[in-house]
Amino acid sequence: MSCWDTVQMYALRSLGYGERLLPRDDFTICQQVTLIGSGMMWNVYFGVLALAAGFFLATALALGKASPQLWLRKPAQWFIFVFRGSPLFIQFFFAYFAFLSLKQLSPLFDPFSSAWMGALVVLFLNTAAYSGEIFHGALMSVPKGDMEAADAYGFTGWARFRKITWPTMLRLAWPAYTNEAIFLFHATTLVFFSGFPARQQKGDALYYANYFADKTFNPFIPYPILAGYFILVTLVIIGVFGLVNRRLNRHLPVARKMRMRLRAPLMR
């Protein structure tokens, strides 16, 4: 059987298409690369959607935490504290328990005990908390002068936020936010590992890597393959976020751009 046949059989296995039975003997490198790659689709799915949705909640949380209103500030503070203060491992555990009991109340919650929905919600809340903290930090360090200039030009309310505060906040937060994105993609490997059960052997990259390590009794091939895929994903993230960063900083003189890049702290 050629490698191309294997790819056709297993490339979409993680979504439930193609060959039903996973390989059981005569394991080849090609099978491992194909199936682990197939599982990567789930990691990308969780990562991209959680990040995209989390971005908006994070902005809201940052504004909430910076708000002078107590009833806005306290919930935002607590949300960020709880989700940043506890391991994702434990969050998955509680979420799975909670979703199972909600399921008894209404069939509306049925999808939540499956990974595609339930784990996505947990990852979304988790990344929103971490990004919210990063955005809050950035919001606090928006230069006073920028705001005064905005006032002088007559910007108020929504327009001031949309045109001045928000872009500056993003610009300041971007290096740390890039790190958060990388961490989030790494965190997606926990979904099937500790959180949610895998149904019909449809799992993420780590699930298949684990499967092969288990069947071949040799961890030294599947896990490095998994690592290779993640290094690729990380490079893509750094590339894409770098482009956005360039766009966010396009109005700055070169020297200041350099300084921005160098001050990048690791936030998470």
């Binding site: 490997t189 780590l206 961890p219 690592a227 290094i231």
Partner: peptide
């Protein structure tokens, strides 16, 4: 720096200790 940062810590833990 680049490689270790690019790999999820679980994947690392699963084979690295034996190695």
């Amino acid at each position: 720096i680049a490689i270790v940062r690019g790999v999820p810590d679980i994947a690392f833990f699963l084979f690295f200790v034996i190695a």
